[in-house]
Design a protein around this nucleic acid. Structure first.
Lengths: 193, 193
DNA sequence: CAATCTAACTAACATTTGTTAGTTTTGTAG
DNA sequence: CTACAAAACTAACAAATGTTAGTTAGATTG
């Protein structure tokens, strides 16, 4: 089977390669020459497609963060119960993990290497997302669908597990995605009942 | 001999400072000059106390990993029920998080920058710990103390939350430690019942 | 064919990096 | 006070870094 990367734009190939290397060794420990070697080209040639190393990181991270924000917007405004919205959010995380395993692995830590407006933007999206998540969790408790939990700590626990799912999924790629969604919903949401 | 104690205490200051900076910016993005500046000394002077940047990282990570291994050994061999052992393990994580907040933050990601024997040793300790954790979880299920969960995924979820607790705790240092232990046990263990 | 565009190349740059060597200061024990 | 060891300093190093400038090969278009 030919390389899947062949069908993508050169820029997208570079982003994918960078995501894989950033995941493996971290942003700082990955050099432009590392990325270039993997792409079988010279480091300077990368600049025909991307503006800077920093721009690679911010494209990767902001793309993921925006996708989560968009997903949250849709789910928040849908007309299902609060507990169902929570279920859909867990499913969103699982789906994102499956679709963007490498890039999503950068979310927990590598954002610290963003600079300027990019880091502000990223943290704005992240903080708003977490606020929305807490709000939904609180609403579900008020609906008597969840026990009398510490909202902040429970929210943190759930999101921690979801953020690290990429690591589990990498070792279990055979897993059926829909089954995984159901199991995570059970573990993380109904475990708290 | 009091000279040696003074030297060790200076070394410990360096380790603590390094842990704080490694946490903030990552191992690779933290230079020896960064650590030195924070210690109000020159980079070269650090080498009177430590052998290399790499040695700092491995001392920090292996110290934490060994403490977990020791804790697991004690708990495994104690004469309480399996479910109580799980409770004690959660409490161990919480206590370690409180005692070594900065150094413990390096456990999830920064081990990738270990080299040679250090990385082998670290991964051995980590993998054995996770195996022991899984075994206990399985035993608790067999005791009918937990529902019919996917052991691997549940173990992963619990450990993810515990690994990231340092981040929550940093923003909630006022929290009573014993209360936090109880809440985490409830969230992570009895949530699964 | 000629002109244009894309995407590769080589060469070089100014910084920053971890670390070593050699020297000087400082604190303490006898 | 002297002697010594601990721990700081200055200076320098080779290697690696992100990036720019200028050039060239190959394809596409008029």
């Amino acid at each position: 089977m030919p390389n899947k990367n062949l069908m993508l734009s050169r820029k997208q190939q570079i982003l994918n390669t960078a995501a894989r290397l950033f995941r493996k060794r971290g942003y700082s420990a990955t050099s432009m020459r590392d990325i270039a070697r993997e792409m079988q080209m010279e480091a300077a040639s990368l600049y025909n497609h991307i503006n800077s190393k920093q721009a690679i990181l911010s494209e990767l991270l902001l793309h993921i963060a925006q996708a989560f924000t968009d997903g949250m917007f849709e789910i928040k405004n849908s007309s299902v119960s609060n507990i169902e919205k929570l279920e859909q959010l867990v499913a969103l995380h699982v789906q994102m993990t499956v679709d963007y395993t490498d890039a999503i692995s950068l979310i927990p830590n590598e954002w610290v290497h963003l600079e300027g407006d990019a880091i502000k933007h990223f943290l704005n999206l992240r903080d708003q997302y977490e606020k929305d998540f807490n709000t939904l969790l609180e609403a579900a408790v008020k609906d008597k669908k969840l026990g009398d939990i510490d909202i902040d700590l429970a929210s943190f626990s759930i999101l921690s597990s979801l953020r690290w799912l990429y690591s589990w999924y990498s070792k279990n790629r055979h897993t059926d995605v829909e089954k995984l969604k159901k199991e995570m919903i059970r573990n993380l949401i109904y475990g708290l009942k």
